[in-house]
Design a protein around this nucleic acid. Structure first.
Lengths: 156, 156
DNA sequence: GTAAAAGCTCAACCTTGGTTGAGGTCAACG
DNA sequence: CGTTGACCTCAACCAAGGTTGAGCTTTTAC
């Protein structure tokens, strides 16, 4: 860390600096703070100051969003990070591992849908009684009590 | 088709019947009609009447939604269906084939993200300079002019 | 020392995909 | 013929994830 970087670390980043370095709009940073996703303190003139850690936090938030995790869930996960010390690699890895499961599930759901869709392109999608798309696998597997798209195959 | 089914076909389904047979709320059917996704005519008392075709249309809409296609795009695609005759299996298959491409792309994006995330769980996600999650592959591949998450790897 | 740039708060607005409710009409059953 | 239940329209509301703008203060640069 250079001397000027040490000063930076003590004074903190301004909201504009964080926006530029993270690629996130200032309004989004305000929004994230209001939603409890990030934190800041204020300087004498009521301007926000951020610690260096906020950059990694924002990176994690954006990755989780890409994985399809809603902000509220991300906020919950971030609250499980240690408050006393700066989170380390292991802490971040724990969050990632949790989200990987959700991501796996989403990929599997979409992959199943794609396979069914592929089959139906060949068979005249949605026109045959046996079409799996008409009766989503999940609802069927759950015992048929789910909200079936069509109550009887003869409907179409 | 039984005799009563023939009468049904002439008179059309009521909105309540379509809701029950399709598993979609009445308010949603009104909404879909307002958005140009489905059509109806009116009986003497200004009540909506639907042709049997609407059921397949709704099935297709819901499948496309599951694939992540926004309603506006679905509406566009549905407008390419023949207006003169009842769409046949080939017509529906064409739409499905188009959406399959989008679905493929979404699956690939998520799969790449998962693989990167997996790597980072092992490596101490987001803490190392080489972490691919910090600099999404797409932006990099596009020539680096995209909105990079962090301008310099040394930021974190 | 002054002007521009950056920051502040708070409320309003945006899109997507619908749901809810008020106030009124239509239809079907007994 | 009356009373339910189904239907109508239109406007308001919801959640998520932000963006925009007005009006005011602070900081920075010349």
């Amino acid at each position: 860390m250079t001397k000027s970087e040490k000063i930076k670390a003590l004074q903190g980043f301004s909201v504009g600096e964080v926006a530029e370095r993270s690629g996130v709009a200032i309004s989004t940073l305000h929004f994230y703070e209001a939603e409890g996703l990030i934190e800041s303190w204020r300087n004498g003139g009521n301007h926000r100051r951020y610690s260096r850690d906020v950059l990694r936090r924002i990176a994690v938030i954006r990755v989780a969003q890409r994985a399809g995790v809603p902000l509220k869930e991300i906020a919950e996960a971030l609250k499980t990070l240690p408050q006393k010390r700066t989170p380390n690699a292991k802490d971040w890895a724990r969050l990632s591992a949790g989200w990987r499961g959700e991501l796996d599930a989403r990929i599997e759901t979409l992959t199943r849908l794609r396979d069914e869709l592929s089959g139906c392109i060949g068979c005249g999608c949605l026109s045959l009684k046996a079409c799996p798309l008409r009766n989503p696998g999940d609802a069927l597997a759950a015992g048929g009590s789910g909200p079936l798209l069509f109550s009887s195959p003869s409907e179409i």
